[in-house]
Design a protein around this nucleic acid. Structure first.
Lengths: 185, 185
DNA sequence: GTCTATACGACGATAGAC
DNA sequence: GTCTATCGTCGTATAGAC
C-alpha cells in the first residue's frame, strides 16, 4: 500500500499478509515470513516490533468489508445472508485468523473493535424502533453464527446446500430483528 | 475419572484440564502442566504422546452438554437460548478453547465432530417437516452465533443486557426454524 | 513399569557489529 | 538499514535410574 515504505519492509508486509491468511497466526513463523520475503528473520521483528503487531497490522488493513449493508431495509436480511454465502476466501480467512488468535493479548480487543466497526455500527445506522441496540447486536450474532458454521466448523452440508434455500430459511430470522414491526416475508 | 490410571497420569490430566480451560491451548505449555501436576515435563509427553492429543482428550471428555434440547417442542427455541445465556464458564471455556485451536491439525475435525454430535444430531431428532437437515444446521449456526458474540467477541452490551429481553428477541428466530409451520409466539 | 535427566531443533526476540 | 550471534522457551525424543 504505502509506497514510502522501504523495499524490504514492504516485502515483509506482503509475505506476512499472504501467510497469515493462508495458514493462520499459530502456523506461521517469523522465519517463514522472512524466507518468503527473502529477508533476514531479525529484520521482520526489527521492522514491526513483534509477530503479534505485524499480524494485527496486516489483518486489520486487509479486512475490507466483511459484510455489506446496503439495499432496501425490507430486504436487508436477505442481502446480508446472500453476501456472507458469496464471500470469497480472502476476506473470510482474514476474519478466521483473527478469531482463532483471539486468545493472544491484543488480538482479542482488535477482534472486538472490528466486530463493532464492521457489524454492529453499520447495522445500528439502519435500524429504528425500540431496542435498536440489542437487535443490532443480535443480528450481528446471527451473521457471526453463519461464519462460525461455514468457516470455522466447516459444516459440509451447509457448504454444499443450495444457497437460495439457505437464504430463504435464514434471512427471515435476521429480517425479523431488522424490521420487527412489519409482517416481513 | 478412570481410577485405573496411575497417580501421575491422573495428576497430569487434572492439571491439563484446568489449564487448557483457563488459558487456552496456545497459552498453556507442557511445562506449565507438568509444574502444576508436580511432575517431570517429559512425563506429560510420555503419558499422552503429544500436547495436542492431551488437549483433545481432556477437552472432549470435559465438554458435557453445551446445550440442552429438552422441553416441549413449541418452546425449544426459548429453552435453548436461555440455556446458552445461563451457561457457566467451565463449559463455555472448553468450547472456546476448541474453537481457537481449530487450526491445529486434528483439533479442527474434533470441533466438527463435536458440533455435529452436540448440536446438529440432537436437533435433528426433534425436528420434523421439510428441509429438516438444513433447518437443524441453521439453528446450530444461530446457537454458534450467540456463543461467538458472547464468548469469543465478548460483546459487553449483550453480556450486560437483560437476559429476558434477549430471549424474547432471539428465541423466535430459532423457533421459526424449529417449527416453521406453526404461528409460534 | 514409573519416572528423571538431558538433549535436540525450532521458536520469538534482543544486542550489537557492519 | 541490514546481518550475525545469541538468549530463553517451546514441544518432543531417548537413555537409563529407581
Amino acid at each position: 500500500m504505502a509506497v514510502s515504505r522501504g523495499a524490504s519492509k514492504q516485502a515483509v508486509w506482503d509475505a506476512a499478509s499472504a501467510l497469515f491468511a493462508e495458514q493462520g497466526y499459530a502456523n506461521t513463523s517469523v522465519r517463514d515470513i522472512a524466507a518468503r520475503a527473502s529477508v533476514d528473520p531479525a529484520l521482520v521483528i526489527r521492522h514491526y516490533g513483534t509477530k503479534e503487531r505485524l499480524f494485527l497490522e496486516t489483518m486489520l488493513a486487509a479486512d475490507g468489508e466483511v459484510v455489506r449493508f446496503d439495499g432496501p431495509i425490507e430486504a436487508l436480511g436477505e442481502s446480508i445472508v446472500r453476501f456472507v454465502l458469496d464471500t470469497h476466501s480472502s476476506v473470510s480467512s482474514t476474519y478466521l485468523a483473527l478469531i482463532r488468535a483471539s486468545d493472544s493479548g491484543g488480538v482479542g480487543s482488535a477482534l472486538r473493535a472490528t466486530h463493532e466497526a464492521e457489524f454492529v455500527a453499520p447495522l445500528l445506522e439502519h435500524l429504528q424502533g425500540p431496542q435498536r441496540e440489542e437487535r443490532a447486536r443480535l443480528v450481528a450474532a446471527m451473521v457471526g453464527g453463519l461464519m462460525y458454521s461455514l468457516w470455522i466448523v466447516g459444516d459440509q452440508e451447509l457448504l454444499r446446500a443450495d444457497p437460495e434455500r439457505l437464504v430463504a430459511l435464514y434471512a427471515p430470522a435476521l429480517q425479523g430483528l431488522i424490521t420487527p414491526h412489519s409482517a416481513g416475508g
